[in-house]
Simulated assay, not measured.
Amino acid sequence: MTEDDTVHEEPLTIGAFAARARLSAKALRLYDRLGLLAPAYVDEASGYRYYRADQVERARLVALLRQLDMPLARIAEVIGAEGAEAAGLLAAYWADVEARVAGQRTLVGYLRGRLSGRSSEMYGKFVIETVDVPARVVLTEKRHTLADELPAWIGASLGRLEAAARECGGVAGAPFVVYHAEVSMESDGPAEACVPVADEAAARAWAERQGRAREIRVRVEPAARVAYTRITKAQVAHPQILAAFEAVEEWLAREGLEPAGPCREVYFADWAAAGPEDPVCDVAFPVRAR
Rank of each mutant, 00 (worst) to 15 (best):
A260W: 05
E149T: 09
L252R: 00
S157Q: 02
Q235E: 15
F17E: 00
P190R: 05
E98A: 14
L150T: 02
D96G: 15
G83F: 08
L257R: 03
Q210K: 14
A21K: 08
A147P: 05
R105G: 10
E250Q: 12
A181G: 12
G83M: 08
R49Q: 04
Y110T: 05
F17T: 02
A253E: 02
A92N: 08
A40K: 08
D5W: 07
E9W: 04
E208G: 14
F285Q: 00
L161D: 01
V133N: 03
E98K: 12
V218G: 00
P39G: 02
V78F: 13
C194L: 03
A224Q: 10
F176G: 01
V183W: 05
G15A: 14
E44T: 11
P134K: 06
R29T: 07
A247H: 05
A27N: 12
R22H: 13
L23V: 07
V101S: 10
L257Q: 07
G88A: 07
R29P: 13
T13H: 07
G124Q: 13
F126L: 10
P259E: 02
A269F: 09
T229Y: 04
D43R: 13
L65W: 09
S116A: 12
L61C: 02
A193T: 04
T140M: 01
V56S: 05
G159Y: 05
E246S: 15
Y123S: 07
H144G: 06
V195I: 04
A273V: 03
P151R: 11
W94N: 08
I241N: 15
G170K: 03
L158V: 10
P196S: 06
S24M: 04
E121I: 06
A99M: 15
F268L: 01
A16V: 07
R230I: 01
